[in-house]
Design a protein around this nucleic acid. Structure first.
Length: 416
RNA sequence: GUGGAUGUAGUUCAGUUGGCUAGAGCGCCAGAUUGUGGCUCUGGAGGUCGUGGGUUCAAGCCCCAUCAUCCACCCCA
C-alpha cells in the first residue's frame, strides 16, 4: 500500500472545515491590521535560503529538500516564508513605494525533520511581515496581531515570551560575555552544547538537558548587554504592549534559530500539545533585506504553525464552527420521481441552496438514513402521490416536523 | 541524525505459557407486514495478522532483519 510520505498528512472532507475556519480567522485578522496577502512559489533557488536563513542553521544545513532540476539549477523546497517574501519584494521594487509595506501569507513549508507531535515535514504557516518601520510601535503592532488572532481563535492562557537579542552593535560584547561564562563549565556541558559554544552560543540558553539548563540560569542575559538604542526600543515596545492589553513575559531563553533575527524576538508558547509548544514565533530582522541585495530596510514579522494552532484548539476544546451540512435532501421512490427530483435540486442549487438526491438507487429508508448521516437540515420525499398532487412534505430533520410544500424551488426556499 | 514504544478488519482494540475455519465494539451494507432518518433487534460484507527471512510437527504469539507509525532528544512553527 502506498501511503502519504513520512511527516505529511491528509485533511479529509469531514475535517476540512476546521482549516477553512482557521484560515478565515487569520485572514480577517490580518486584514483588520491592514496586511494584504502575498503569494510566492513553493520552491526557490537554494542560494536564497543559504543567504537568507543562514548557512549555519540546522534548517539550511540538514533540513532542506534540495535537488537539481533538469536545467542544472539547485532548487530547494521552501523551508520558511520570510526569505521568499523579502526576495519577492526586492525583485518587484516593493520597497520603492509607500512604506511600511505590510503583508501576510498562508503557505506550506518543507523541512526534512523526524516527525513527532506538532512537527511535520510539510507544515502550514501563517506569516506576517512588516517592512520599512523601525519604531517600537511596529514591534507592538506585529505582536498584537498575533495576540489578536490567538484570542479570536479562542486560545487562552497563552502568553507572549519576549526577549531582545540585540543588534550587530551590541551582539559582539554579549557573545564575549556569554562564551566566557560557559567556558567555565566546559567539562559539564552536554556534547551538543559544547559544539554550540563555537557555532551559535546563544543556543546554549535554550538547552533542555538538566545540567545545561541549570548552568544557563545564571548566564549573562542579552537584555543586560543591549546598546542604548536597543534598550529604549525594547522598553518602549513593552510599554506599548501593556497599553494594548497584550500579556507578555520577558524570557531571556528566547533566542530563535534563524540567523536573520536582530533586536526584539518573541514566541507564543502553549503547554499541553507535546514538546513542540511554540505556536507562533518571530522578531525583528533589520539586516535581511540588505543581505539579500535590497536597500537597507528595517523589518519584522512572525510565523505561526497552523497544525499547532489546531492542536491547541483541540486540546482546549475550543469549538470550531462550520461543519458542512446540506440544506435539502430530496429522496425519491417510484419510477418518475427521479426526474422531478433532479429538476428540483438543480433549481435549488441555482439559488445557492445546497441540495442532494440519491445517486445509488437505494431504498427510501436508506436514502433517509443517508440524509441523516450527512446532516441534511431538511428532507423531502417525492413519489407517485406527490407527483400527482404537485405537493410534498418538507421534513425538518431536527424536529421531525413536516411542512406541506408545493413542488417548486421557490416555495422550498421560502420555507427554509 | 540519536533514543524509546507500537504495528491484528474502515476504525478502536482483544487474542492465555506457540495448538483447530483469527474475535469484539463502533462504522459500513441489507432486512424487521413491502412510502420516511435517529433507538432497538437480526443478518451480511470486510483481515496478505506491516513486510521478508528463521526456529518448530505447528507462529498473530518466539528470534533476526526491514519498513511504517507514535513519543522524546536535536531543531523549529
Amino acid at each position: 500500500m502506498i501511503q502519504a510520505p513520512k511527516g505529511t498528512y491528509d485533511v479529509l472532507p469531514e475535517d476540512s472545515y476546521k482549516w477553512q475556519y482557521l484560515e478565515r480567522i487569520l485572514r480577517d485578522t490580518a486584514k483588520t491590521f491592514g496586511y494584504r496577502e502575498i503569494r510566492f512559489p513553493m520552491f526557490e533557488h537554494t542560494e536564497l535560503f543559504i543567504r537568507g536563513v543562514g548557512d549555519t542553521t540546522d534548517v539550511v544545513q540538514k533540513e532542506m529538500y534540495t535537488f537539481t532540476d533538469k536545467g542544472g539549477r539547485s532548487i530547494s523546497l521552501r523551508p520558511e516564508g520570510t526569505a521568499s517574501v523579502v526576495r519577492a519584494m526586492i525583485e518587484h521594487g516593493g520597497f520603492n513605494g509607500a512604506l511600511p509595506v505590510k503583508c501576510y501569507y498562508i503557505a506550506p513549508n518543507f523541512r526534512y525533520e523526524k516527525p513527532q507531535a506538532g512537527r511535520y515535514r510539510q507544515h502550514n504557516q501563517f506569516g506576517v511581515e512588516c517592512f520599512g518601520a523601525k519604531s517600537p510601535s511596529a514591534n507592538a503592532e506585529v505582536i498584537s496581531l498575533a495576540d489578536t488572532f490567538l484570542k479570536r481563535l479562542g486560545i487562552r492562557d497563552i502568553t507572549a515570551h519576549i526577549n531582545s537579542i540585540g543588534c550587530p552593535n551590541c551582539r559582539p560584547k554579549y557573545y564575549e560575555a556569554l562564551k566566557a561564562y560557559f567556558e567555565q563549565y566546559k567539562d559539564q556541558l552536554c556534547p551538543t552544547c559544547l559544539e554550540r559554544l563555537d557555532r551559535n552560543p546563544m543556543r546554549l540558553l535554550d538547552c533542555k538537558s538538566p545540567v545545561c539548563s541549570e548552568i544557563a540560569k545564571d548566564a549573562p542575559r542579552t537584555i543586560d548587554y543591549l546598546c542604548d538604542d536597543c534598550k529604549t526600543d525594547f522598553d518602549e515596545t513593552l510599554k506599548l504592549l501593556s497599553r494594548m492589553g497584550v500579556d507578555y513575559q520577558i524570557d531571556s531563553g528566547i533566542v530563535r534559530g534563524l540567523d536573520y533575527y536582530t533586536g526584539p524576538v518573541f514566541e507564543f508558547i502553549a503547554s499541553g500539545i507535546g514538546a513542540q509548544g511554540t505556536v507562533c514565533g518571530g522578531g525583528r530582522y533589520d539586516g535581511l533585506v540588505e543581505q539579500l541585495g535590497g536597500k537597507p530596510t528595517p523589518a519584522l514579522g512572525f510565523g505561526s504553525g497552523m497544525e499547532r494552532l489546531l492542536l491547541v484548539m483541540e486540546q482546549l476544546g475550543v469549538p470550531i464552527p462550520g461543519a458542512e451540512t446540506i440544506d435539502v435532501y430530496v429522496a425519491t421512490t417510484g419510477k418518475d420521481a427521479g426526474d422531478a427530483a433532479q429538476k428540483l435540486i438543480l433549481e435549488l442549487r441555482r439559488m445557492g441552496i445546497s441540495a442532494e438526491r440519491d445517486l445509488c438507487d437505494r431504498s427510501l429508508k436508506a436514502q433517509m438514513k443517508y440524509a441523516d448521516k450527512i446532516g441534511a437540515r431538511y428532507t423531502m420525499v417525492i413519489g407517485d402521490d406527490e407527483l400527482a398532487a404537485g405537493t410534498a412534505n418538507l421534513k425538518n430533520m431536527q424536529t421531525g416536523e413536516q411542512i406541506p410544500c408545493v413542488l417548486s424551488a421557490a416555495t422550498i426556499e421560502a420555507v427554509l
